[in-house]
Every structure is written in C-alpha cells, then in structure tokens.
Design a protein around this nucleic acid. Structure first.
Length: 882
RNA sequence: GGGAGCAUAGCUCAGCUGGUAGAGCGCACGCCUUACACGCGUGAUGUCACAGGUUCGAGCCCUGUUGUUCCCACCA
C-alpha cells in the first residue's frame, strides 16, 4: 500500500514478475478435489518445429480466459499443455538443417543417428514454445505438460493400434493413396490440399489395333502417366464409340496393347468422351480397372521419377518426363491438340508440391464403424460446436469419410508395432516388442519400417495426456474434458479424430464443447505466412504493448468462428485501456487511508449508482462467458471501466475526496476500492497481468487475484431509483457541457447554474456533482414553480438548457447567437416531435398494444410521457427567444 | 457440383433470444478541469448490399438476386 506507481503502465516490468509469482505459488496446478467440479481443457499441442504465431496466441488466449474464469468460479480447473512431434513437418526441418549445415541426408546418418538429431531439435524448440506461451500469461499446469512421443503417450498409441487391429479396424492393404514425392511418404486424404492451377488438356491419338487409320482420341491433363495406361474407357451409352468397345488399341511410344472398355464413369460431355485408364496412378481409373480387370502398372517411383524399363524416360522427373513425352507424341503425330485447362491439383499440405496418386501398400483405419458413434454424439448434442454451423461441416465430413491412411514413410514418429515373420509370413502386432512370431514362434521377425501419422497420436490427446490407458486418478477425475478450443482449419485433422477415438476407446466423447475460432490475418486480410513475410510475431507485439493488450485485441472486435484482421493500432487502443485502468488505480491509491475494503453503511446516490451498475454488469458478463461470447463479455467490462467508473464515478468522488469530511472521504474510498476490486476480477481472465498487479497493491485478502472468487450479483446492491436519479444528473451535466462547448467557454470559466426542476431532491443531492463536472461556480436548485421564475431568469439574460429532468440557466447569454440558438432549438424540437409522433403512432396501434410484451409497451409509454414534458419545455424556451 | 461465411459510419469491425443502430481508429472544435495527452470535453457521419415476404414492429426471421471469401467433392 501506498507504493508510488509510475504514471504510465509498464507491462515489461510487471508481466515476468507476476508470472513467476503465480508459478511459485502453484496457482496453475490442477488439483483433484472431490468437493469441486472439474473443468478441463487440453491445449492443442503446437508443433515442436516452430514458434508461436498469432493464431496460437489467439488460441491460447481463449483457453486461458476460459480456464481462469472457471477457476475463479470455483471449478477444479486444469489446463493441460504440451507439444506435438509433428512427424513430417519436423523431419523435413531437421533434414533441411542437416543438408544445409553438414551436406548430409538422413540416409547418410541412418535411422538411429538421425532420430537423435530430431530429439535434440525437439528439446531445443519445444522449450522455446513453452517460454513463448508463458509470456502470454497462459495458466496451464506445466507439471502436466506432455509430448506426443512421451513414454506414456506412446503406450497409448500402441494400445490403440493393437486394439483397433484386433477389432479388425486397422488393416494393411495395397490401395491408391496420395503420395508426396518430395516428402517421400504417403498422406491421408485430409493432408492433400487442392488448388486450381492452370494446365493443359492434351488430346492424344491412340490407334485402334488392326484397323488402319482408325483412332481413339483421349484427353488428359497428365500425359506422363500414359506410360502406365492399360486401357481406354468410353461411356456405354455413347453412340459415337459403340462399335469400338471390346476392341483393342495401342499405346503410342510404348506399343502396349490395351482393351477399350465401356464404363458409366466416363462423362460423355467432357473432352472427347474417351478416357485413358491409368489404374496405378488415378483413383478413378483404379476403380474402373477393378471392374474391367485392367492391369495396374506403376510408372512413377517414390521420388516421382519414371521407373526402369521406359527407355529414355526412365529416371526422368515427372515434369521432365511430361515435356519429353509431349515432344515425342508431337513428333510422332500422336498429339492432336492442346487446350488450356484449369484443373484441380492435389498438393502436399506440408511442402505444397503436387501429390501423385499411386498404388502402395499402406496401413489404414477402417472408418465406417468408428464414424457411426462419432456422428451420433454430435447429432444428439453430446458434443456441441460453437458456433453451431461447424457441426454441419463436421457431420458432412464424417458422413463421407473414407478409410484413413495412417502409415508414413518417415522415421520421426511412432513406429508401427507390427512384425512380419520372415519364415511363415504372418504378422505379429503387439503392445510390447515381441521376440518371436505369434504364429510359428520363429525369432526371425522384422518390424515395419513405417511410422504412424502424427494425427494418430494427437487423436488420443484428451485422454492419453491424463494417463490413459492406465486407470489413473487424473483420468477418472478430469476426463471427459470440457471445452476444446481450436481453429476451423483443423476440424478434420484433429477434432474429428479425437471424437471418434475417445468414443471408441473410452466410451465417451472427449469434450462437450468445441469452441471454434477463425484465422488471424494481416491488416489487409491476407493469411499470415512465411513466404509473404507478413506474419506478425505475437511476442514482439506483447513486448511492445503488453501481453494484456495483445490478448484483449485478440478477443474483442471479432465474433466466434470468423477470421479477424490483426490491426496494430488496435493494440495501441488496448494498451491505452490498460493504461487507463492503471491510472484509475493510481487515483484510487492516492492518499488511500483504508486498510480493509468494506462497503459503508450509508451510501450516496452516486455510490448506489455505480454499485447498481456493477451489480447488473456481473450477471451480464457471466452469461456472456457461459455462452462463450468472450468478446462481448470483454467489451462490457471495458465499457464499464472506461465510461461508468472512470468518466463518471471517479469524477463524482473527487468532491468528497478533496473535501474536509473525513467520514465522507473514507466512504468514497471504500466504494472506489470495492468497485475497482470487483471489476478487476471481471477483467482478470482477459488481462491477467495488470489486474493481478493492481490487486496486489490494493487492500485485499487472499494471496492472488487469479484465485479469488468470481463476483456474484447481490440483490441488496441493486438501486434502480438511484440509477434513474443519476441519469438525470448525468444528462444535465452533458447538456451544460454541450452548451458551453457550443459557446466556446473554457472549463476555467465557471458559471453559476440555476436549475429549475420538479426533481428538487435529486438535483439538490446532485448539486456538488454538477458543480464539479459541469464547471459551475455554484448550483442553485429551484422548484419548477410555474414559468414565472423561468421568465424572470430569461429576462435577466440567462442561457437556458432544457433536459428531460430540468431547465438549467446560466449567465452566458451575451455569448449566444440568437438566430443560431433558435435554429438549434427548432431542429431539436422537430426531432423530438418526430420521435414522439412515431411513439404515439405505435401506441395508438391496437395491434402493438395488444401483441407486444407489456414491458415494451410500458417502456414506450413512459418514453412518450418524458418526450411530451421535454417538448413543452423546448417550446417555452423557443417562445422566450421571441 | 454441393455446403458455409461475409456485405452495417471514411477504415477495421461489434450488435445477445426481432422493439427504430454502436465501438476503436480516423475527422472537426475546444481543453494541461491536480489519475491518465496512452488523456478530457463536445461534435459530424449510416435508404444496416438489393428485391420481395412474415410481423403491431426487421440490421436481426423467411425467399430470391448481386458481389465477395472459404470449405468439401474423383470429372480425365
């Protein structure tokens, strides 16, 4: 207490210190407490590859707000942090570094040595992420931090794999999958991003066998795949090609004989109506091939190069081969025409190179049985998306989901726990490393080389982090978790998979609410990206404006699920807000004489007004929080602090604080402190640092603001009459100020106010407030005893201001331009009459009176009554001007 | 080809279950009114995309149109 505070808030000085205090105090720890309800959030684990970006900052902020709110509400709050090993992404990074620094590939090092390097990387960057998160003020339980490749989580992965395998829900098979030749691995469907790219449609002539000068003309966007063609298909209903179905054609350049088949798949309208079939490199062709027994011939190797056996093309990269093949087709007269064609190309979500569909032996999760329950829990509302529209996205995806390719040809990840016997060929799948074949007991077994999709382990995150599959106390108490907060961009990758995984393995959906937020874009609305160089580093912003300002920026001014633009000037505005609170607190602390905050027995009108305002703010904010309308909640607190507390209440108290009456002084201090303290609690989830810092320096009980009880509405602190009365005072203050401003009277020039009103009691009480805030030398309140008094004052050359509650006179008439004043009055009168006419129209409408809620009708009646009174006063005032 | 979002003040956006529009920034004028110039006071600015409909009443609900962004989908 009594500590001298700097004039401007310095977040850099405060934040680190406060965070350390919380950590030391164990404030973040989630304690199992049977007397409390748990509230659990698991953090979407950031990749160990990178650093925090603005999207993470938003994601963390939302989670932190919810966690802090629930913790204050009395829940046993637990927020589990962690990081993801991010298979492909991390492996690529480490490989790049290896190549750049040492000119080596992972193969040069070998699997074990390479993995050591990745672990080094993980330790370095994983720690950095934690540091960054702490700067934002996240209140997660660091003791429970997990990594997807921790021993416990790896056990969970093995357990799930074996369990699904034994249920027949995991299988290995040769199917068309998406292959990234750059990352040299298979991808799941979700990992392919489709982009419209300009390309060509090449029309190629395939001669019909045994018939001179007869051809079929096929159209293709990927001519290099022709090397793997094993047929041509036409639509069975296509009259043009009826006669050639069943015949054979010859593949140019390769001279392969291929059947011409009829299949419904072919669209007669597109291209020439003839389609070359490449079953090994196109998912549709693969299907057609199955129906017609076409051969599958793979012509691209894992690196996207043409395989052996194709002469000069062999060894060529796919793009090189395309050029060469087109050139040769042209030279041979096989190329009929080329037309530009926009087409949808699949690209790798990690490296953005074109993906090649190809046949490969991979592991899959059978989705149909798992999707059933995952659909049910969302359809029946056991798991709810906020905003609700995302449940449609989810359902639509889940309804159409295909089997999930989970094997990756990488080294970094959970190695597939399957061993093939070199003697009998049988597969052993086991949670613990087997020493012999489960079938023939031969010791000659070899483990699969591949690892699992990163998302296979993240899918288990909500329960694997709590100790599952062990039956741990944490798991029993904290699971299912409550809210999952994430961006809409990973609903398919992650949210969907967590839901079906939890349903399958724990029998429960992993959380009851999925809070979806949008992307943080740059100030021009573009995605922030490394290549554009338009990314804004949250830590730089936090350093400059304070983490609280950054957090407040990220949660206000946007609505759930929608993207937001990051505008630096908004950070400035939020920093100004922080500073405003800081200075309000400095004011409260100046000459503070109380040591304990207790509301006094007797309260003034303005005390009751502010308490009453606060009292209705509390449930409003709480309701918004419960409805996940965090931005609205924050905005309400902001408005209360700036408008009600600072602009009005603090000003109201100055008269008492600077007066002689020590009792009144103390009373004002009590109310100031009380309201500030309660407000700091409401603001704390949004701006944890500054609120804690201020709270610590105010009279308080308890150790930490962050562990205080969330405010509750109190019936005895609701004062509607005083709110109304103060409205009159505030309105009068405004009216006087407006008039003075209009007349260009500086605040230093005080004027005596004479207030004619029917609410004499209110204005007498409010006189000291008006005197101060309306820059009056003195205030005299007279009754509204007829127009005579008013006329008298007008005669004395007073300026008159008319409000709902009063006529206010001040001796500034010499400054008034009569004509302008008349115009102004006429304008206001016109507007007021217009408003009244509207109201009267509505009130005389039987439909409105009978159908609208009584409360609304009553409100409008009262308003009309007020307006009538005002209009009378305005008319008189106008008349007096002649 | 399906689905979704958005269109509100000069800019960026709020607007909860329908009761006649708000914020921040910017702009204009005036202020060092002893917490704050990262501030204070006052003010200007909107056919809430367009057209219909439901309703006593629509920025908000329904239908359609236009523009725009995104997601999903195997059209070679």
């Amino acid at each position: 207490m009594g500590k001298e505070l700097p004039k401007a808030y310095e977040p850099q000085e405060v934040e680190g210190r406060i965070y350390e205090m919380w950590e030391k105090g164990g404030c973040f720890r989630g304690h199992r407490d049977q007397s409390k309800k748990p509230f659990t959030i698991v953090m979407p684990p950031p990749n160990v590859t990178g650093q925090l970006h603005m999207g993470h900052a938003m994601d963390c902020t939302l989670q932190d707000i919810l966690t802090r709110f629930k913790r204050m509400e009395g829940y046993a709050a637990l927020w589990v942090p962690g990081t993801d090993h991010a298979g492909i992404a991390t492996q690529i990074k480490v490989e790049e570094a290896l190549r750049e620094n040492e000119g080596l590939t992972r193969y040069d090092l070998g699997r074990d040595k390479f993995l050591e390097r990745v672990w080094d990387w993980k330790h370095k960057y994983g720690a950095r992420i934690v540091e960054q998160q702490k700067k934002l003020g996240v209140s997660c339980d660091w003791d429970r931090a997990r990594f997807t490749m921790d021993e416990g989580l790896s056990k969970a992965v093995r357990h799930v794999f074996v369990s699904l395998y034994e249920k027949g829900l995991i299988y290995k098979g040769s199917r068309i999958i998406n292959w990234c030749p750059h990352c040299v691995t298979a991808l799941s469907d979700a990992e392919v991003e489709y982009q419209d790219k300009p390309g060509n449609l090449w029309h190629i002539r395939y001669p019909i066998q045994g018939e001179k000068d007869k051809y079929v003309i096929v159209a293709t966007t990927r001519p290099e795949t022709m090397l793997g063609d094993t047929g041509v298909a036409v639509n069975p209903n296509d009259a043009r090609y009826k006669d050639i179905v069943g015949k054979k054609c010859v593949l140019p350049l390769v001279n392969r004989e291929m059947p011409i088949v009829a299949d419904e798949y072919v669209d007669m309208e597109f291209g020439t109506g003839c389609v070359k079939m490449t079953p090994a490199h196109d998912p549709n062709d693969f299907e057609v091939g199955l129906r017609h027994n076409l051969e599958t011939i793979r012509v691209l190797d894992d690196n996207g190069k043409i395989v052996e056996g194709y002469g000069r093309y062999s060894g060529m990269d796919r793009y090189e081969a395309r050029k060469a093949i087109i050139a040769d087709l042209e030279a041979g007269g096989w190329l009929v025409k080329v037309e530009p064609h926009q087409h949808n190309v699949g690209t790798c979500y990690r490296c953005h190179n074109d993906v090649e569909p190809l046949i490969s032996a991979q592991w899959f999760v059978k989705m149909e049985p798992l999707a059933r329950e995952a659909l049910r829990v969302v359809r029946e509302g056991e798991t709810r998306f906020v905003p609700d529209r995302f449940s449609k996205t989810y359902i639509n995806w889940m309804e159409n989901v295909r089997d999930w390719c989970i094997s990756r040809q990488l080294w970094w990840g959970h190695r597939i726990p399957a061993w093939t016997c070199q003697d009998c060929g049988k597969m052993t799948v086991s949670e613990t490393d087997p020493t012999e074949c489960c079938h023939c007991h031969s010791g000659n077994i070899l483990q699969e080389e591949d690892v699992l999709d990163t998302w296979f382990s993240s899918a288990l995150w909500p329960f694997s982090t709590l100790g599952w599959p062990e039956d741990t106390e944490d798991f029993r108490y904290f699971f299912p978790t409550d809210v999952l907060v994430t961006g809409y961009d990973i609903i398919f990758f992650w949210v969907a998979r967590m839901i079906f995984s939890a349903c399958e393995h724990t029998g429960k959906p992993p959380f009851h609410t999925v809070l979806i937020h949008g992307l943080v874009r740059d100030d021009k609305g573009r995605k922030m990206s490394k290549s554009l160089g338009n990314g804004v580093d949250p830590l730089v912003v936090a350093e400059q404006y304070g983490a609280d300002a950054l957090r407040f920026n990220l949660v206000t001014g946007n609505s759930p699920g929608n993207d937001m633009r990051f505008l630096p000037e908004r950070c400035e505005a939020m920093r100004n807000f922080a500073n405003k609170i800081w200075n309000a607190s400095r004011f409260v602390q100046m000459n503070l004489t109380i040591e304990k905050v207790e509301l006094p027995e007797t309260l003034t009108m303005e005390d009751k007004w502010v308490l009453s305002k606060l009292n209705s703010l509390i449930p409003a904010v709480t309701e918004n929080m419960d409805a996940y309308e965090l931005g609205v909640a924050a905005q309400k607190v902001y408005d209360f602090i700036w408008d009600d507390y600072c602009d009005w209440y603090i000003e109201f108290t100055k008269a008492r604080l600077q007066g002689e009456d020590s009792g009144a002084k103390e009373q004002a201090q009590q109310v100031l402190c009380y309201v500030l303290t309660e407000t700091l609690k409401l603001l704390h989830p949004f701006m944890p640092f500054i609120t804690e810092e201020i709270w610590q320096s105010l009279p308080h009980e308890g150790d930490y603001l962050m562990l205080q009880k969330w405010p509750e509405q109190k019936r005895e602190l609701s004062f509607p009459a005083e709110e109304k009365a103060m409205d009159l005072i505030i309105e009068a203050t405004r009216a006087v100020r407006a008039k003075r401003s209009e007349l260009n009277v500086p605040p230093s020039k005080k004027a005596h106010l004479t207030i004619a009103t029917e609410e004499t009691a209110v204005f007498e009480q409010g006189a000291p407030l008006l005197k101060r805030l309306a820059w009056a030398s003195d205030v005299t309140v007279v009754g509204m005893a007829g127009a005579s008094g008013s006329d008298e004052m007008r005669k004395q050359g007073m300026v008159e201001v008319v409000t709902f509650g009063a006529r206010i006179f001040m001796p500034l008439a010499e400054l008034v331009d009569l004509e302008q004043e008349k115009k102004r009055l006429e304008k206001e009168l016109g507007a007021r009459k217009g408003e009244l006419a509207g109201l009267e129209g509505r009130l005389s409408n039987p439909g409105f009176v009978s159908k609208a809620p009584a409360q609304v009708v009553e409100g409008q009646r009262a308003r009309a009554e007020e307006l009538r009174g005002l209009i009378v006063k305005l008319e008189e005032s106008l008349a007096s001007l002649g």
